[in-house]
Amino acid sequence: MPQQKPATRPSAGLRPGRGGLGSIAVITFILIAVAQYMIFMYVPDDATLGLIQRIFYFHVASAWNALLAFGVVFVASILYLAKGERRYDALAYSSAEIGVLFTSLVLITGPIWGKISWNQWWTWDPRLTTTLILWFIYVAYLLIRMAADEPEKRARFAAVFGILGFIDVPIVFFSIRWWRTIHPVVISWQGAAMEKSMLQTMIVSFVAFSFLFVYLLINRLRVEAMQDEVAQLKERLQGTR
């Protein structure tokens, strides 16, 4: 059997225990259920926007999760380059996938809300545009992972791009903001002074979505660990043949 580099060996710490996952699943389920109840039953219709305003609890919580996920990618990428351990690579990859998922949700729920309340699907507002670019950057991250074939090289390239992309995001945001101040701004963001029940619902949604993120991340990490195991078993099989 060929000698493996430490970077490609699945680390024992990668695989979380079954028991911990179960309790997180239960907590996530209850929190999501409570959040749904609050969003659809507890909170009143928005005075000006009406029913459609309820999509905001999903929208903002998804945006929060996306940010969280890409932050994890950034930190895990740095750790991977510093230590070269496979588990940091797995963490960055899993988190990036989940981040792209939630960014997609933000980009889908946003225009649905915008069509009703702004009467147009899209505006080239700094926040919207930055989110779109963010989506492109992390889709690019996933494409790099698909294009590099050796696991060690894939991990290294992805980590480099994960760091680069995260540094780029604030620069993109500010340049787009200055760009929009030169052009006429069609829609301005009203300062949102939220009603008490709305704030409660928003906080519960945030917490529920954060748990959902952790739950998805742990599950995704387990899949990575299993894939590593399958790869190792395959290699052993070929060795005995």
Binding site: F136, A140, L143, I176
Partner: peptide, 11 residues
């Protein structure tokens, strides 16, 4: 992978 990163340069 290059174009999303260079948006600030384009603007």
């Amino acid at each position: 992978i290059l174009f999303p990163i260079i948006i600030p340069v384009v603007i």
